[in-house]
């Protein structure tokens, strides 16, 4: 017997237009929830910025825009590789999926290295979490995002393992992993604009 949730999923996911969504329905629920939570973080940041705009602008001037820009391109490139992996999975090309996911994971690892380097530079110059309100938000927001990147790398590992095991759900797994990774990318491009570029 179908539960109410099954019926809701059937109507909402399979009942309209394209008939399906890329990946797992539960992953989309998680992703949308995470986007709402990050949206709240952005609003809280902007409210605090409203109270001390000069301090936020002055502190922002100490950030390393070059590393942040490079990291944005690294993450966008990684997302592009994952999007191509989804199409390779749909064509049943497991070798291409493994190659593309591995490359995307490598770029994800590079993002982590660059982010930690950026933090080390800031900390060595005396800008730490308790320095002021801007840096508290900077370290907290980029830190929470970095945890999402690390979780994404773990998901890539699971996807690669399942593909090597010949899992029958490999297309759904790759799509679900891709959905999560793209969400990490969406959050970063908005963090980049708000933390590094807003004047």
């Amino acid at each position: 017997m179908n539960t109410l949730w099954d019926r809701f999923e059937g109507v909402m996911v399979r009942g309209e237009e394209d008939d399906r969504i890329a990946g797992d329905f539960n992953m989309w629920v998680f992703v949308l929830g995470d986007l709402v939570i990050f949206g709240a973080y952005f609003v809280v940041f902007m409210v605090h910025r409203f109270h001390e705009p000069e301090l936020f602008r002055a502190s922002q001037g100490h950030l390393n825009l070059l590393i942040a820009t490079l990291n944005t391109i690294v993450l966008l490139t990684s997302s592009q590789l994952v999007a191509r992996a989804v199409h390779a999975a749909r064509q049943g090309d497991d070798a291409a999926v493994r190659r593309l996911i591995t490359q995307a994971g490598g770029l994800g690892a590079l993002f982590v290295v660059l982010k930690v380097t950026e933090w080390v530079i800031e900390i060595s110059r005396g800008y730490t979490l308790p320095s002021d309100e801007f840096f508290m938000f900077y370290f907290c927001l980029t830190g929470v995002h970095l945890l999402h990147v690390l979780l994404g790398l773990l998901i890539f590992g699971v996807v690669l393992h399942e593909i090597r095991q010949g899992s029958g759900r490999r297309v759904t797994l790759v799509e679900a992993g891709a959905t999560y990774w793209h969400m990490v990318d969406v959050i970063w491009v908005l963090l980049f604009a708000v933390l590094y570029l807003l004047r």
């Binding site: 309209e16 237009e17 394209d18 999007a83 908005l190 604009a193 807003l198």
Partner: peptide, 29 residues
Amino acid sequence: VSILVLGLGAAKAWLILDEFMEIRVAPTW
């Protein structure tokens, strides 16, 4: 400058949602 960089950031997020996450062909909801 702030409105411009926010607009460019939003355009990037839109591209990721529509093209990478395939939102443009997803169910209406």
